[in-house]
């Protein structure tokens, strides 16, 4: 039996090849697709993205990709959100004052950057502190850092959704999940071997916690 097909959702939100290359490095062959029906047939889905919430939502709803994503998550297949993918999974975003997918309860908020020495956005390597075990985070050790680039952060309504935290201006949820959906605010594909370990764990994850 062939392995279930892994798809990276393409919705005009950034360059997806870096995600694809990092997946290949850990033996996860992933195709990039903008076709909602192909996503419905996938056995594993990655929902990445960089850019702004408003344009991302317009792209997703234009061809029904938002519905396909909701369906695959309801079907129980493993889904990994990355960066903007994580952010638009919540109910709404302060960016563009945008209503978003509502896959997870909560709001995405803007860093206030009140301190004059805090650079905008939060860009670079920062520690991801695991607060609750998860199969996708199994290879992450204390002190491990990941690469971030974002000006907004997720604020989940339910503490139970939070698997890891990171400190910048405030302590925010840097990895969240529920059931077969897991998402990171950081970029595992740009986070060296620590990031590759996370992708390898996702590749082997059956979607159960």
């Amino acid at each position: 039996m062939s392995k279930p097909r892994t798809l990276i959702i393409d919705y005009d939100a950034g360059n997806l090849r870096s995600v694809q290359r990092a997946c290949a490095e850990v033996g996860l062959e992933a195709a990039i697709s903008a076709d909602p029906d192909a996503v419905r047939r996938a056995g594993r889905v990655i929902f990445p993205g960089v850019g702004a919430a408003g344009s991302a939502m317009r792209s997703l709803t234009r061809n029904g990709m938002d519905q396909a994503l909701k369906e695959v998550i309801a079907d129980g297949i493993p889904v990994l959100g990355i960066c903007l993918g994580l952010q638009i999974s919540f109910d709404r975003s302060e960016e563009d004052d945008q209503e978003t997918l509502g896959l997870l309860p909560g709001t995405v908020r803007r860093f206030r950057f009140d301190h004059p020495e805090l650079k905008i956005p939060h860009m670079g390597w920062n520690e991801v502190r695991v607060v609750k075990p998860h199969p996708v985070l199994a290879g992450i050790e204390a002190g491990d850092e990941f690469y971030f680039v974002h000006g907004y952060y997720p604020d989940p309504e339910d503490e139970a959704l939070i698997y890891a935290r990171t400190e910048y201006e405030t302590e925010f949820a840097s990895a969240v999940g529920r059931d077969n959906y897991f998402a990171t605010q950081f970029h595992p594909e740009k986070s060296g071997r620590v990031g590759l370990r996370l992708l390898a764990a996702f590749a082997g994850w059956d979607g159960r916690c």
């Binding site: 090849r17 870096s18 290359r21 990092a22 490095e25 690469y147 594909e189 740009k190 986070s191 060296g192 071997r193 990031g195 590759l196």
Partner: peptide, 8 residues
């Protein structure tokens, strides 16, 4: 390089 280096 992008195929084998996974940092920015």
């Amino acid at each position: 390089v992008a195929e084998q280096v996974f940092i920015p």
